[in-house]
């Protein structure tokens, strides 16, 4: 045992003081970065709320746009309806497909079979939405023109990997005991899957779907390529026959056209869209936290 030097000072000197200074600086920088990110979020949300709120009225939600000398006035009723239809049809296509893929990945496939499917989902997820838009443009729009459905199709490709991935994750969280117990009762595999596994993972599936809807509702690039040539002053429900007005393209067109009245309308539409997305992603988050608590209990 070597003797310990008891005469050394107990307060930091020289080198140690420098090391502590570096440590404090780095902590301050990391904290500052986090504050910076939150500040950006607050500034953007505040701008939308402040500028959008002055536009918001019952009429803004229930009237169609009117073209005036100053630019566009009136409301965004037709865009709300169009966005709702486009996203609803996209969800109707992506949800069953995504859940089936997730069932295959977790209930049936071997690791070797799962690898290429996971690769395909990752690549789909990593593709820019504009490229998906170009794909649908070449596949549908070039031959049969723009329709709301072409927009739905593009959005469903964006939603598919999100739903499949989230569903697969929540299916793997279902305890194996549940499946074993069901099998032990002599219940067939498809009944176990549809009657036991899916119901116990339902909140996770729902969360993933809501997040995918929130993501799709704000996508603009694919809609610009597939459902942008619409009559801005009319309501249309004909999703398979015509382009449908929608909120993201309203914001885009109004912001690009310049002019104070147009930009004011753009902020109003942005507030409506942002509110929908915030409510969606916050409630999905709350659902996720609740279901995790239930699972861990």
């Amino acid at each position: 045992m070597s003797a310990i030097d008891h005469t050394g000072p107990l307060t930091a000197t020289g080198n140690l003081r420098r090391r502590q200074r570096v440590d404090r600086t780095m902590r301050a920088l990391a904290t500052g970065a986090a504050i910076f990110a939150v500040a950006i979020l607050v500034i953007v949300i505040y701008s939308i709320a402040q500028r959008g709120a002055s536009q918001l009225s019952i009429g803004f939600l229930t009237k169609n746009p009117t073209t005036t000398i100053n630019g566009t006035g009136g409301g965004i009723k037709n865009a709300i309806i169009g966005s709702g239809l486009i996203v609803a049809v996209a969800t109707a296509m992506a949800l069953p497909l995504g859940v089936l893929i997730a069932i295959y990945l977790t209930e049936f496939s071997t690791p070797r079979m799962a690898a290429p499917i996971r690769l395909a989902l990752d690549l789909l997820n990593g593709l820019p939405s504009i490229v998906i838009g170009v794909f649908v443009f070449g596949l549908i729009v070039l031959s049969s023109g723009e329709t709301g459905f072409a927009g739905s199709f593009a959005l469903s490709i964006i939603m598919l990997p999100l739903i499949a991935r989230n569903t697969a994750e929540s299916l793997t969280l279902v305890p194996k005991d549940l499946r074993d117990a069901s099998h032990a009762l002599g219940i067939s595999r498809w009944r176990t899957t549809t009657g036991v596994v899916i119901p116990s993972a339902l909140s996770g599936i729902l969360t993933g779907t809501v997040l995918a809807i929130a993501r799709a509702a704000g996508e603009t690039a694919p809609l610009l390529l597939t459902t942008s040539l619409f009559n801005p002053n009319a309501t249309s429900f004909n999703i398979f026959g015509t382009s449908l007005p929608n909120i993201p393209l309203d914001i885009f067109n109004l912001s690009e056209s310049g002019g104070a009245a147009n930009q004011a309308s753009a902020w109003g539409a942005a507030l409506v869209l942002m509110a929908f997305i915030l409510v969606g992603s916050l409630s999905a988050r709350a659902m996720l936290a609740r279901s995790r608590r239930m699972m861990s209990r």
């Binding site: 993501r215 690039a221 942005a270």
Partner: peptide, 17 residues
């Protein structure tokens, strides 16, 4: 979650901003 919410802002709104 606040930092993650930054990713939820649609690009068209960020562009308007």
């Amino acid at each position: 979650p606040l930092v993650e919410l930054l990713a939820a802002i649609p690009s068209v709104i960020l562009g308007l901003w």
